[in-house]
Design a protein around this nucleic acid. Structure first.
Lengths: 130, 130
DNA sequence: TTTAATTCCTACCGTTTTGGTAGGATTTCC
DNA sequence: GGAAATCCTACCAAAACGGTAGGAATTAAA
């Protein structure tokens, strides 16, 4: 029931990219986050694969948002970064579970996604999360 | 961002105890859950420490609910079983964090607790979780 | 065309957490 | 006293977490 630091870094990076127009390299992101660029590359690769971030290779390359910040919902971001760990419990993911608690986990899972999908990256970068 | 199997077992056990009037031993619970009684003892000890379950030692002993099922909120249960892993992210737990995402995690944390506290053990054992 | 800057790919690795197992001490009923 | 139960402590294997390392591939600019 914890958010991984990978996810935390991911959101930090995104809120940094949200105020940039030019691509930002992993090394630059290392400077402002204090996290090694090698590790950030991994995080950024996930965000790139899922289409939230666009990676530009080569000199003067780097990472930039694929869409405007108000079109990026945190549910998409967190689900990508937490990878297959967002099902809360296998029981809910698999069909046909009849254990008495499965409805609780389903409710919790839906609620979490609803909260995250209700917040955009723009909300975060502008400090407008209530 | 996953519920541990310890927590899953805990809720399963509780919904079993909810329909019993006499104390139920760990060995009996092993029969209906398929989980080793030794491991269930650990889970039950946590629930006992937190005051949700009452343990009776000695022959004819076992575990029973400390209160009626409609007075047991799942928030209390899940927070106990997930132990110190319910802060979602350290950043939120510690004071003075100013990273732009901290409000998101706080909102998520509060939302999760609100969902869990809105469901009682009675709701679960009667299948009334919507 | 070379060079420097950058992402991408693969592999590895130490630490912590998870999910148990094992054995025995202690308590309590009969 | 014996049986049935919880409680306590220690241990352990596997997985996840949080990185590190090295180099290949790509690209812009000199």
């Amino acid at each position: 029931m914890k958010i991984s630091s990978k996810t935390h870094y991911g959101v930090q990076i995104l809120s940094f990219l949200a105020v940039k127009t030019q691509p930002v390299s992993a090394k630059e992101l290392e400077k402002c986050t204090g996290v090694s660029s090698k590790y950030l590359e991994k995080v950024l690769k996930i965000l790139s694969d899922v289409g939230v971030v666009t990676a530009t290779r080569g000199a003067n390359g780097g990472y930039s948002l694929s869409r405007s910040a108000d079109e990026i919902r945190m549910g998409e971001v967190v689900r990508a970064l937490e990878e297959d760990n967002m099902e809360i419990i296998d029981c809910v993911a698999k069909q046909g579970c009849c254990c008495p608690s499965s409805k609780l986990w389903k409710k919790l899972f839906d609620g979490i996604n609803q909260i995250l999908d209700g917040v955009t990256l723009k909300d975060i970068s502008e400090g407008k999360v209530i």
